[in-house]
Each structure stands twice: as C-alpha cells, then as structure tokens.
Simulated scan of single mutants.
Amino acid sequence: MNLKFEKVDNRIYDYVAYLDNIEIGEADDNVGEPNSEFLIFFNDRIFEVSEKYNIADFFKEDICDFSLPLNFEQFANLNWINKELSYLSFEIEGKIIFQLIPDFVKWDKPYNIITFAEKLKLILLAHDFSVDFKQDNNFLEHGFQISCNFNFDQNINEEYERFLSVIDKEVKNIFENPTLVDINSIANKYSFPQEIRQACEQYLIYFSKFLEDYGIEISSALESRNGDTLFTVKPKNSNEALSNIRDLLDFYLSLPDLQNLEIITKDYNDVSIQQLLSNIYHLKSQLILAHSIIESKNTTIESLKFSNFQKQIYIESNLKNEEKTLDGLVTIQEFEYGSFKFNLPEIFRRLKRKFNK
C-alpha cells in the first residue's frame, strides 16, 4: 500500500493523505508529535481507490482511526441528522462508531428523538449493534452513538455499506411502523451453543413464572434469528419499573452458577422454589451432557456457562444482609454478580406460588 502524508498549510488539518498518488483526504497528528498515529478524514475518492485493499492494510500503516463521508443520497432515511456534526469512523480496536447528532428542525415524527433512539436500540440488538446515549441535556449536544464490530478482512466500502444499510433499513422500519417496537420492554440477545440451546431457551421461558411467583406479571417472547436467541420481556403493569425486572433477570441467570443452592433453599418450602430448582437442575444436566459430547470432539467447554459467554464473572459474598437456615448452621448472604448486588434472602422470601380455585 502506497499511503503517504504531506505536511500542508492553510488547511483545516495539518496533512493531506494520498493513496497510490491520489488525494483521499486530510489527516491530523493524533498527539501533535512527529511519527505519531494519524487520524484520517477521507473524502469520497477513498471508496474507489481502496477497493483492492482490506481494512487491515490501513491499520498496518501509522493510523489509529479514520472517518468516512456519509452518502445521504444512498442512505436517504438518515437525512434528518445534522450533516455537519455527525460522523462515522473506523477505529483500530475493530469498531465502527457512528455519532448521530439530530437536526431538530428536520425532525417531524410524532415521537421525540429519545423515544426513537430507544426503539432503534432494541431493534438493532438483533444485528449485534449497540446504541448508546444519555437522557439528559447533553443529548441535545451529543446525540447518540451506534457501533458494531467490523471485519478487518473486508474492504472499506463493504463494511461501510453493510453497517449503514442495516441502520438505514431499520430506521425506515421504525418510521413506517411507529408501533413496531415497544420501548416499555426489555430485549436481550444470547448466542447459545447448539448443544444446549433448547435447554437454555427453556430456562429463559420459565423466567415469566419466576417473576409471577415474585409478584410481577409479564409477557415474554422468544425468537431465533441467525442462530441467536432474542428474548423480550414486557411488564403487564406499565407502572412496573423495567430496571427491577432487568435486575431480577440478571439474578435469575446467575442462579445456575450459585454454589450450594440446594442447601441455601432447603428451609424455603414453597412450591415456587422447588419448581425453580427443578428448572435449574434440568439446565445443569443438559450442560453436563453437552460437556461430554463436546469433550469427545476435543473442543472447549468454557463457553457453556449459561450466565456468561463473554467473560468470567465472580460471585463475592457480602455481610450486609443475611438469613439463617438449617437451624443456624448455614447463613444466606447478599452476593455480588458482576456489577449487581442481590439481596438473596429477600428474593427467596418473596417467592410464593399462588393457586387459583
């Protein structure tokens, strides 16, 4: 790759970037020192000139990230954003970052921008896209950000079009179907190994009964997309805080990893807890079976922990809340799971199965 940077004056940035002797944009020194990594702001010529190179070729050069111009004719459903302030960049860590600053003068939808961003966040989950924003005064200045991982082996144009095509399509879907996504719901996506998918999905389905026993009524839906499982939960009572349901879902998913669960729950005789244990045992038995199958193929079992496929989360005890069981021989305490702290005794105390006549 013949990529060069030429120092210039009277430009917005300090350098002009050339690829194969064709000007492809301007560049800035990342830290203001010689031989440091460059930030490149490509012009439209990059799409033509870069076709024979993959993204990895660019990051082998002295580049930390680069920004690309947005084609609002090709992606017409994005024409409501502020074209001067919004940008799309590829970062060396392997992420595409799309910062969208809304043009509030152009916004003419029956719902506000934040509601739209929440809808988009839910619908893009199935594509492995993240939508981040803060619901405060900074939203007016910073808008929201959409990101996903890119493939280093593809060329710039391929990943650029893949990323923006997904967003453009889903924005269009929301505009044309205002009720398509209910923001008063929680949606999570899981990538279960094939050997345990059915057992894990069955465990997810039981979450509705777990919440009913806890005193919260919900409706839930399970959908398979491209080998992934999309699980959606919506409270039947609109006054029920989604944050409470989200915390309880995290607690529920942590239970299969909880040590000595049989001893902890021994003095809780309600049928709701017994059925919960039954579902946990079934899940664990399927994990053991899958362990044997996969080990016979000389593959790893590390990813088979239901509650965590990305990284190990350690459970730590906390002495602020506790309850005695087994005549005082065992103490149930609060515990931490990732960034969450659960009041384990109180949760088990609240689980009650109600029977209708």
Rank of each mutant, 00 (worst) to 15 (best):
F59P: 05
Q74K: 15
K83Q: 14
F72A: 02
F90K: 05
E61W: 04
N79C: 09
S86Q: 01
S67A: 13
A76R: 11
A56Y: 08
D57E: 05
F59K: 05
D62I: 15
L88S: 07
E73Y: 07
N79M: 06
L78K: 00
L70K: 06
N77I: 01
E61A: 03
L88V: 09
L78I: 03
F72Q: 05
C64G: 11
W80Y: 14
F90I: 04
D65A: 12
S67W: 11
E91A: 11
E84F: 03
W80G: 02
S86D: 01
N79A: 08
E61G: 02
A76D: 15
I81Y: 08
L78P: 00
F66K: 08
A56N: 11
K83W: 09
F90M: 03
L88P: 05
D65W: 13
L68M: 09
E73S: 15
N77K: 06
K60Y: 11
E84V: 13
Y87N: 14
E61L: 03
F59H: 03
L88F: 00
D62G: 15
I81H: 07
P69G: 02
F90C: 02
Q74S: 10
N77F: 02
F66I: 10
I81G: 09
E91D: 13
D62V: 15
E84P: 14
L68Q: 05
D57Y: 05
N82M: 06
E91R: 12
L85V: 09
K83N: 09
Y87Q: 10
E84K: 14
K83H: 11
I81N: 11
S86T: 02
K83M: 09
F75K: 02
D65H: 11
A76M: 12
N79D: 12
S86V: 02
F58L: 07
N77D: 07
L70P: 02
K60H: 10
S67V: 07
F58Y: 08
K83F: 07
F59I: 03
L70C: 03
D57M: 05
Q74M: 15
K60E: 10
A56M: 14
E84Q: 13
D57I: 01
E73I: 11
L68Y: 00
E73H: 11
K83V: 03
I63S: 00
F59Y: 03
N79I: 03
F66M: 08
K83E: 13
I81W: 08
L68H: 03
P69Q: 05
A56V: 11
S86G: 02
C64W: 15
N82G: 06
L88Y: 00
A76G: 10
P69Y: 07
F59W: 03
W80L: 08
I81D: 06
L68F: 00
C64D: 13
S89P: 04
I81L: 12
E61M: 06
